[in-house]
Design a protein around this nucleic acid. Structure first.
Length: 114
DNA sequence: CCGTTGACGGCGA
DNA sequence: ATCGCCGCCAACG
């Protein structure tokens, strides 16, 4: 049944609700890959349009957007998308995790794996 | 096969 | 609080 390992990561990302964010490490743990935060970043890097993922809702543990030379400015798009959902960036270009971090109910994630 | 890379994270200075 | 270094480990070439 196991598709590509990334599929499980995508399933978790799709659970992040509008207006909320999750960290790479958080997504990894929920996907059953604790400690594999980098795999999440890679999975999103390789994600295609067809996956229809709210990829912009995944940020790093510091509460900021992980900038990458590869995206060549796509980072601005990420911020723009988040702000359009009501997510606020403070003066340090950080997001207040206390307010915006997604706090999932584990049982629901497990159920959503099908 | 093996060295490098990296959309990360945590810990120490 | 900030910054840098190092550990992780699958994917790439």
């Amino acid at each position: 049944m196991a598709e590509h390992p990334h599929q499980q990561i995508y399933n978790v990302v799709r659970q992040i609700p509008y207006g909320k964010v999750a960290t790479y490490g958080q997504v990894a743990a929920l996907a059953g890959l604790p400690g594999h935060a980098r795999q999440v970043g890679y999975a999103l890097y390789r994600a295609e349009e067809a996956e229809a993922l709210p990829w912009h809702r995944v940020i790093n543990a510091k509460g900021e957007i992980s900038y990458s030379f590869i995206r060549m400015g796509g980072d601005n798009l990420q911020r723009q998308l988040l702000e359009s959902e009501g997510v606020v960036f403070n003066k340090n270009e950080r997001i207040d995790m206390t307010t915006f971090q997604w706090q999932p109910i584990l049982a629901e994630i497990t159920h959503a794996q099908d």
